[in-house]
């Protein structure tokens, strides 16, 4: 159900932020450092999330998550929502993907906004977790009158 136009907004270089539900039911914001659309699936994604505060525990399995991807230059944004399927430590492949995507993101921020890459690198946290989520809702999150409009759902 995730069409290529939506996938493009989550491509390497995008700004990625996630909304989750903490172990005590509180909302939780964190940054995402990579998104991979899993092969053979049309709605399952694997996301590397920052977790320096150690909030991302197995309690997340079965809860819902929101992930927003934004173009650094145009602010065109999409939000996908769905149920968390797994919570794991990052594999070497996850770390490689995270390195590629975070480097692309910082280079793009540098190109667009002029921030030095070596300063931006401080944003990247040491501790991460990886979640897999099945997407069942997609929203336009671009700032403006259409922000929040649903553009796809299988719920």
């Amino acid at each position: 159900m995730i069409d290529p136009q939506v996938m493009a907004v989550f491509a390497p270089g995008s700004g990625l932020v996630a909304g989750l539900v903490d172990h005590d039911g509180e909302p939780l914001s964190t940054r995402a450092w990579s998104v991979v659309f899993l092969p053979g699936s049309t709605d399952r994604i694997r996301v590397v999330l920052a977790d320096d505060g150690e909030h991302l525990t197995p309690h997340l399995v079965g809860t819902r998550m929101a992930l927003t991807g934004s173009d650094v230059e145009t602010y065109v944004s999409r939000q996908v929502k769905g149920e968390v399927q797994t919570v794991d430590d990052a594999t070497p492949e996850d770390r490689r993907e995270m390195a590629i995507q975070s480097r692309t993101f910082m280079q793009k921020v540098h190109d667009v906004d002029g921030n030095p890459v070596e300063i931006l690198e401080r944003m990247v946290t040491g501790r991460v977790k990886v979640v897999e989520m099945v997407v069942d809702e997609i929203f336009d999150q671009t700032p403006g009158p259409g922000a929040g409009v649903e553009i796809g759902s299988s719920r």
């Binding site: 700004g15 932020v17 996630a18 909304g19 989750l20 539900v21 039911g25 509180e26 909302p27 939780l28 914001s29 940054r31 809860t63 819902r64 998550m65 929101a66 992930l67 927003t68 934004s70 944004s77 939000q79 929502k81 809702e137 999150q141 700032p143 922000a147």
Partner: peptide, 18 residues
């Protein structure tokens, strides 16, 4: 800034704020 809230059904919403 990045803001997350949660709906009654437990679905979070995450958005940027200028």
């Amino acid at each position: 800034a990045v803001m997350t809230t949660v709906a009654v059904d437990g679905t979070p919403n995450v958005t940027y704020l200028s």
